[in-house]
Every structure is written in structure tokens, then in C-alpha cells.
Amino acid sequence: MKKLLLTCLVALGFASASFAQVKPSQTAKIKTPNILCEDCKKRVTTYLDRIDGVQTVAINTRRGETTVKFVSDRTNIEEIKTAIANSGFDADDIPANEESYKRLPKTCKKFEDGGGHPKPKAPAPAEQ
């Protein structure tokens, strides 16, 4: 009887320990329309890797979207957006930090600022 009770207690201990390891993580999609090349991606990824709690970063340059998976106990979405802005790029409603934007290589700047990014295409006129 004692062995059965001891076995149950050990199993319960392992089960509760495994549940304690689960950390609440979130995934956020952030609009980053200015990230259009590999240098831009590398710069933003470097800034985001410095934040405690960021697990993965995936940047889709065609959609102008950055997907970040992070531990919500350690960081939040606003801190992540601020880090992207501090790297010199717009992040949703937070504009790029001006000083950081000035330090970007010419190839990573917006077209209207003399940069190498392509000029945004005008929407096609609607057919009637």
C-alpha cells in the first residue's frame, strides 16, 4: 500500500512539474512596410534578439509584415514595436526613430529620401 501511495505521489510530482514549465507565449503580426531587403531583415532581427522573451522572428518582405513569437511574461508587443522603430523602421503605429533611420544604409532608406527601396506602385485605376 505504501509503494502504491509513493508511486502516485511521484507521478503527481512529475505531472505538476511538467505543467509548471509551460510559459505563456503569444504571436503578434506587426506591419513593417519599409523592411524590403536582407540587410533590413538582419538589422531588425538583431534588435529583436536583444529583447528577453522573444522566441522567433519571421519577416515577410512581400507582405510588409513581421511575425514575432514571444513570452508574454517577459516582454510585450509595445516593447517589440519600439525595438523595431529603434532599428530605423516603422512598426504599425510607431514611426521609425529619426536618428536610427538616418544611420541606415542608403539601400535601406525609403525612395522619397533618396534610398534604394523601390517607389511604391500607384494603385491601378478602377475599370468602369
Score class of each variant (00 low, 15 high):
residue 54 V to F: 11
residue 74 R to I: 02
residue 73 D to R: 10
residue 10 V to W: 08
residue 33 P to I: 01
residue 89 F to H: 03
residue 108 C to M: 04
residue 116 G to K: 06
residue 121 K to W: 04
residue 50 R to V: 03
residue 52 D to Q: 13
residue 101 Y to P: 00
residue 39 D to I: 10
residue 119 K to M: 09
residue 65 E to N: 07
residue 88 G to K: 00
residue 88 G to H: 06
residue 60 N to M: 07
residue 57 V to Q: 12
residue 33 P to L: 04
residue 29 K to V: 11
residue 121 K to D: 13
residue 93 D to I: 02
residue 6 L to Y: 12
residue 14 F to L: 14
residue 66 T to I: 07
residue 102 K to M: 09
residue 106 K to E: 09
residue 85 A to C: 08
residue 71 V to H: 05
residue 62 R to C: 07
residue 8 C to R: 03
residue 9 L to W: 08
residue 118 P to C: 04
residue 63 R to L: 12
residue 92 D to Q: 07
residue 119 K to D: 06
residue 51 I to A: 12
residue 6 L to D: 10
residue 69 K to F: 02
residue 112 E to S: 06
residue 124 A to H: 13
residue 59 I to V: 12
residue 86 N to S: 09
residue 68 V to N: 02
residue 105 P to W: 04
residue 84 I to T: 00
residue 85 A to F: 00
residue 63 R to H: 03
residue 124 A to C: 05
residue 29 K to L: 13
residue 99 E to P: 03
residue 43 R to I: 12
residue 104 L to K: 00
residue 87 S to R: 04
residue 120 P to Q: 05
residue 61 T to Y: 00
residue 14 F to S: 11
residue 51 I to T: 11
residue 16 S to C: 11
residue 94 I to S: 00
residue 121 K to P: 06
residue 32 T to C: 06
residue 67 T to C: 11
residue 108 C to K: 01
residue 72 S to K: 07
residue 26 Q to R: 14
residue 25 S to A: 10
residue 72 S to Q: 07
residue 80 I to H: 05
residue 47 Y to C: 02
residue 99 E to N: 13
residue 12 L to T: 13
residue 35 I to R: 00
residue 20 A to N: 10
residue 125 P to T: 05
residue 16 S to P: 00
residue 25 S to C: 07
residue 20 A to T: 10
residue 94 I to P: 00
residue 86 N to H: 10
residue 122 A to L: 14
residue 98 E to K: 12
residue 38 E to R: 15
residue 106 K to C: 06
residue 87 S to E: 09
residue 72 S to H: 03
residue 118 P to M: 07
residue 81 K to E: 01
residue 48 L to T: 04
residue 33 P to G: 03
residue 78 E to M: 13
residue 89 F to C: 05
residue 10 V to A: 15
residue 58 A to T: 15
residue 50 R to D: 13
residue 63 R to I: 01
residue 21 Q to L: 15
residue 77 I to P: 02
residue 89 F to M: 07
residue 94 I to Y: 00
residue 77 I to Y: 02
residue 52 D to G: 12
residue 113 D to M: 10
residue 77 I to H: 05
residue 118 P to D: 10
residue 54 V to A: 12
residue 57 V to R: 02
residue 49 D to V: 09
residue 94 I to V: 14
residue 77 I to E: 06
residue 37 C to V: 08
residue 30 I to Y: 00
residue 8 C to Y: 06
residue 98 E to P: 09
residue 53 G to N: 09
residue 16 S to L: 15
residue 13 G to N: 09
residue 104 L to Y: 04
